[in-house]
Amino acid sequence: MSSLFDPIQVGDLHLRNRVVMAPLTRNRSPNAIPRDITATYYAQRASAGLLITEATAISHQGQGYADVPGLYGTEQLDAWKHVTNAVHAKGGKIVVQLWHVGRVSHTELQPDGAKPVAPSAIAAKTKTVLIKNGIPTFTDTSEPRALEAAELPGIVHAYAVAARNAVETAGFDGVEIHGANGYLLDQFLKNGSNKRTDDYGGSIENRARLLLEATRAVVDAVGGGKVGIRLSPVTPANDVHDDNPQPLFDYVVRQLATLNLAYIHVIEGATGGPREISDRPFDYEALKAAYAQAGGKGAWMVNNGYDKPLAEQALKEGDDLIAFGKPFISNPDLVRRLRENAPLNEWDKNTFYGGSEAGYIDYPALA
């Protein structure tokens, strides 16, 4: 049986252990530019087998929260290069999560104060973050407009350009496509947010079209061995739902199996909440089997509420990688603590979003 601390080959990436730092939005990148403390933050956690960055916008239109980073400007890419250099100096591997928020945004965050975009003009009953008087403030999202079909190739192209810039200019080891948590690609997937009647709405095949087009474009740009994708079949995050998620996501992973991706990253249950949702049952083993039966060779990464015993059980049952979220916020040396069964630092929720060093790079490591 594999241990959390055994190495593994994941696509083009050789990882020194099976512990993954999940993407964690921290709202500490004014003007969408990572700061020097961002490099410190990720380098502190470089003992993880793989670091997945906080979600990072592929375009200005893709921005949905104040002070989150981007990949669409020279200053942003230069700043990320400092981050990847710092992680590589510690022997770590790091991929960037490619993000387009779709309707989960606000006019204050969009180019020229425009409406956010979405598959259909349906507002998300959720909050975003704006900075008011220097303080992160949760605010209702703005009403979106429906994307025209003619705009979709441009969004697909933006994913590819961001991926290429991330790897070739910013020095990332790869990319993860954010297809989860009620953001743009997930909005297209799920029939609660997608009411289109064109080739991108209606049937499962149509609703999955944009996610698959974006993934193929990213694979063409950087190679499948450097690409992962994150999916969340039943999370209610950001007001998304689908009436019948099992056949939808079984179809999605069967299509992804043909692209030779490095990994599939699956959020089990509600993001940051219950691992099982009584009114949204889902068979994750069947999902993994559908991927394997279609010839999928990428690593299978699981996420949501894992501790060491649960992680070891998942590895025993055939999963390959375990993503840990909030424990990595307060434990820069989480891998060592897991290995030594050492107690974990508690996190301070008040410093999750926004701010500077406090609650970001000042959590202590073991002596």
Rank of each mutant, 00 (worst) to 15 (best):
Val156Gln: 12
Asn17Gly: 10
Gly62Arg: 09
Val252Asp: 07
Gly182Met: 13
Thr38Cys: 13
Gly174Pro: 08
Asp78Pro: 00
Lys288Leu: 04
Ala57Thr: 02
Arg28Ala: 07
Asn331Pro: 04
Thr271Arg: 03
Leu366Trp: 07
Gln9His: 10
Tyr200Gln: 05
Val266Ala: 14
Ser29Glu: 12
Arg28Asn: 06
Arg280Val: 10
Gly359Lys: 09
Tyr159Thr: 00
Ala43Met: 05
His60Asp: 06
Asn331Leu: 06
Ala311Ile: 11
Val156Lys: 11
Gly49His: 03
Asn303Ala: 12
Asp320Asn: 11
Ile37Met: 14
Gly202Phe: 13
Arg209Val: 11
Ser232Lys: 01
Ala158Trp: 08
Gln255Tyr: 05
Thr74Ile: 10
Pro7Val: 07
Val96Ser: 06
Thr235Gly: 00
Gly182Cys: 09
Val104Thr: 05
Pro34Val: 14
His60Pro: 02
Ala262Ile: 12
Ile361Glu: 09
Pro23Asp: 12
Arg196Trp: 09
Gly179Thr: 05
Ala22Met: 05
Glu312Arg: 06
Arg18Ala: 04
Val96Lys: 11
Gln44Pro: 11
Ala166Arg: 05
Asn244Tyr: 01
Glu357Pro: 00
Glu276Trp: 00
Leu24Tyr: 11
Ser278Phe: 02
Leu98Gln: 13
Glu357Cys: 03
Val96Arg: 00
Arg216Val: 11
Ala123His: 07
Arg196Pro: 08
Leu185Pro: 11
Pro30Ile: 14
Asn165Gln: 10
Ala292Trp: 02
Ala257Pro: 07
Ile33Gln: 12
Ala22Pro: 06
Glu205Arg: 13
Thr128Val: 15
His157Thr: 13
Asp199Met: 12
Ser59Gln: 06
Ala163Leu: 12
Asn304Gly: 07
Ala114Val: 03
Gln110Asn: 02
Val96Ile: 15
Lys90Asp: 03
Gly202Ile: 07
Met1Val: 14
Leu152Ala: 01
Glu205Gly: 03
Ser232Phe: 00
Thr139Val: 14
Leu130Phe: 06
Ile122Asn: 09
Tyr291Gln: 11
Gly113Asn: 09
Gly113Ile: 01
Met21Lys: 15
Pro343Leu: 02
Ile52Leu: 06
Ala86Ser: 15
Asp67Thr: 07
Arg336His: 03
Val302Gly: 06
Leu24His: 14
Val156Thr: 15
Gly325Ile: 03
Asp199Trp: 01
Thr74Tyr: 00
Gly102Ile: 10
Thr271Gly: 09
Tyr284Val: 12
Glu312Cys: 04
Ala166Trp: 10
Leu212His: 11
Leu98Thr: 08
Phe5Arg: 01
Pro281Asp: 05
His178Arg: 02
